[in-house]
Amino acid sequence: MGYPEPIERLIQNLTKLPGIGRKTATRLTFFLLNSKETYVKELSQSMIDIKERIRLCSICFNITDVDPCTICTDPKRDNSPICVVEEPSHLMVMEQAYPGVFKYHVLHGVINPLEGIGPENLKIRELIERVKSSKVSEVLLATNLNMEGNATAYHIANELKPLGVKVTRIASGIPAGGDIVYADPQTIRSSVENRRDIV
């Protein structure tokens, strides 16, 4: 004899989650069965909320529950550079390092011909329009420093050039904690090109 239908149904639904097998799903189901009702209600409501209330900001395309997002409407960032990132998670990384410093623009990917992703599949046109229609002090291109990230950054820089806005790229080089012996010549060269005065 199986479990009563509601229990069986929750087990089935939980096994659809990544990394959850039937055994874990069963354990979670009985944990919820023995939990306080307020917790179970809060848990299910929070799951509904991410689907119903999260969308993309119409200015920067970060994920948000209010549109425009709180970063775009933050008056302290009015004259901030726009930092261009690949994904919302990359925005979080930048924001952790520089809290309150940048405005952002999330591309939702990078140009990747082998995956069939071209500039028109990303939020690039929206970025150009945004720079055209508002006063922007600087655009900082913070896509990854690999082939696709570089190609995307160069493409955006070429598109922005006629608009006369200052465009910069995050530096590449030997990482902090890195060992010179393990760096390839290109990395060494870019570390030297990006060198700075020390005293």
């Binding site: 140009i111 011909p113 500039p119 082939m147 570089n150 190609a151 160069y154 493409h155 010549p185 290109q186």
Partner: peptide
């Protein structure tokens, strides 16, 4: 290790 590097190609979308 790298013998020849063609990453300049990344600068021009059409060439890329």
């Amino acid at each position: 290790h790298i013998l020849e590097d063609f990453s300049e190609i990344e600068r021009d979308l059409r060439k890329f």
